[in-house]
Design a binder for these strands. Structure first.
Lengths: 235, 235
DNA sequence: CATTATAATTATACCGGTATAATTTATCAA
DNA sequence: TTGATAAATTATACCGGTATAATTATAATG
């Protein structure tokens, strides 16, 4: 792990361990430099990382301060996406469908592949702490996600892609809508037709810019509480 | 304006002016350095800014590339919040209520003030391109937002706070829910009771960490299409 | 005591350098 | 032509420095 990431982790763990409240001032840069035996720029980079994670804020001429924490029961939604920030929640999945197929025009467009190329199609229900969280339909570029099965799809597919396939997940584009549930969705989510849903279309890219996953997710509105922190641009 | 922000702007304008498609490779660092007559670190900082804005992505050993753009009609939702990213949309507002009052316990808690301190309360409907976008209730700490009137609240209150009051807006915490409209909301949004809504509670902070605005917003689901880009943490 | 001016503190901008890791291109061998 | 190997390209990590701007603490002033 990189030095600045390591330092960021240690500072984060320190904040969490000591349960520091909002507004607590952290040691000044100079102190952090000697504490972690590193240069100023590396400390700054670590702090910038923590600032973008929403853990601290920095005030020029004043100091570095601890930022407010999440409300309980809210899913933290960083600019990393949902999936990794689910610590503290019990996430499981039930696979409804899993097959290899040819993509529709829309899917092919979003994955930047030809309509003759193969994709893995996965339809599943995801649970959070035993409650139905969402209904997900995902299309994976088979050239990148070379293999999938039921067992893998029952767990975290992204963990599998990162760890087993060794691919590096980069960024994503999300298109968010508020809509009413249709019949199929309502039955899977255990809700009524016309009930609210959060509907999100996402294209996930590897860190080299290749799209590997196009997904459509309908969230159960009863479980949909998200915590989101903005940071401003001047980092 | 800072040099690295200036450079980021110029690169952004260049991308938009030339309408460069996704995947287009930008000049290499060395070229950008001489092009903008600045040091490596400053160029890197400018590019890091653009990366967090979702405009480019960088691949080590390969280059800097243009990222996908927004779909038409979607409100771009950066980690800056909604308000500033509404270029291309016509945003207006109608003020329903505006007064000075004592905060409830919840409002006082979120603004970190005493229940005896004054707040400005503003209730208004915001329109996007003539359509009803949302119903907003906001509480402003009167020690910070010292004056408000109907005319100001008809426009952008944040612009007023930044420009006229000279305060620097820093970051925000958002709590997002999907719910059903109640009677009051439905009547103001021109929708039916039970229709979906995106309900967002936000605490806005100045750049020195002081909370100055606590707001509750109910979005019209028919106008609620948001574009959101995640970036990964390794910037 | 309140206000103002000054100094100290502190984070940030900006510079330019070396070393490193990932990718791409060129080279060579089979 | 293919596949492996080496070299070149390119972004990133990390260093340490000076200058600057914002804030906070201190001193001076009325």
């Amino acid at each position: 792990m990189l030095k600045y990431q390591q330092i960021a982790n240690e500072i984060q763990h320190d904040i969490e361990k000591k349960d520091l409240p909002q507004g607590t001032k952290l040691p000044v840069l100079e102190t952090l430099m000697s504490q972690y035996k590193t240069s100023k720029s590396t400390v700054i980079k670590a702090l910038s990382l923590l600032e973008r994670k929403g853990l601290v804020y920095q005030v020029r001429g004043s100091g570095i301060f601890v930022r407010r924490r999440n409300r309980k029961g809210y899913i933290s939604f960083s600019n990393q996406g949902f999936s990794d920030e689910l610590s503290g929640f019990d996430i499981t999945a039930k696979v409804l469908e899993l097959d290899i197929r040819k993509p529709s025009a829309e899917v092919a467009f979003n994955l930047k592949i030809d309509s003759e190329d193969d994709v893995y199609y996965v339809k599943r229900i995801r649970y959070i702490n035993g409650q139905i969280l969402c209904l997900e339909e995902s299309y994976y570029n088979k050239d990148i996600v070379t293999y999938l099965n039921n067992e893998i799809a029952t767990g975290s597919i992204f963990d599998y892609i990162s760890n087993a396939l060794g691919a590096k997940i980069g960024f994503s584009d999300m298109y968010v809508h508020i809509q009413k549930l249709n019949e199929d969705e309502a039955s899977h989510l255990g809700l009524l037709v016309g009930d609210p849903k959060l509907f999100v279309e996402t294209i996930f890219y590897l860190n080299n810019g290749l799209p590997f996953d196009f997904s459509r997710i309908s969230y159960n509105y009863e479980q949909s509480q998200f915590f989101f922190q903005s940071t401003g641009y001047s980092l």
